[in-house]
Amino acid sequence: MSAAEPVVTEASERSPVAGPAPLRRRLSTRLLRSELRLIAGRRRNQMGLLVLAAVPVLIAVAVRISSPREGRGPDFLSSITSNGLFVPLAALSVELGLFLPLAIAMLAGDSVAGEANLGTLRYLLTVPVGRTRLLVTKYASLVIGAVWGVAVVVVAGAVAGIALFGTGPMPTLSGSEISFGAAVWRVVLVSLYIAAGLAALGAVGLFISTLTEQPLAATVALMIFTILSWIADSVPQISWLHPWLLVDQWMAFGDLLRDPPFWDNVAQGLRVDLGYAVVFGLLAWARFAGKDITS
């Protein structure tokens, strides 16, 4: 960060939302841009994106070269042949279980724990940027990373699907058909919904990342959190807990493919996402703002 970095007052840093409008305009995006450059430049992240993009391509090619047969695969798989847009949906439902949370876990592990491990965190804190602002920037980059990852899956899937199966009206789960344009819109909604869930997971990851200086520990811990949530969600004996689990409504994105869309579960999912983001975001702030940066 150079000396040209605008210095904002302590008060506006702590509550950027409440700050007066002229002051907010002075908030530079340089910190965020540099963070995003770092994320995009890491070789492991690029490889991760490649893996994310490979899955829909693999699905599309496999369905194309095999004869249609009976039997249940992942959701939406059987519908792919009728419309290429089902490729991203099938890919999302497959990757939501492990790959997409893993991508977030990698980013979250790097965000604070990774910098602490490399020793760059204390240099980052010597620039005239408050810790709160640094943390908000870190979280914003995680949210962008979530959207990014989902977008890679969807775009790769849509390109592969449309190339191999073409466009056409999309059959909804309710048995009606919607036009291709409306179908694209539905897929965008699905992507945003999934990205929101991953962004909430990113808040959990950010908090874990402030607890340790080992990026791998943070990544593994977040994956354990995710997988434990999936396991808890599949145990019917603790159904009272299910509405409180982050992953509980993640698969509800299929409700957006009904006609008309069924919003109840999606709204519940977004409420849970918001709750997790707020609570774990504040936890991360409480931890990070008072943390001793020793390395």
């Binding site: 439902s93 309710s174 048995g175 698969m251 509800a252 009904r258």
Partner: peptide, 11 residues
Amino acid sequence: LALIGSNGESD
């Protein structure tokens, strides 16, 4: 009448 299943529906 539409039965809402997870990623499925019967009408």
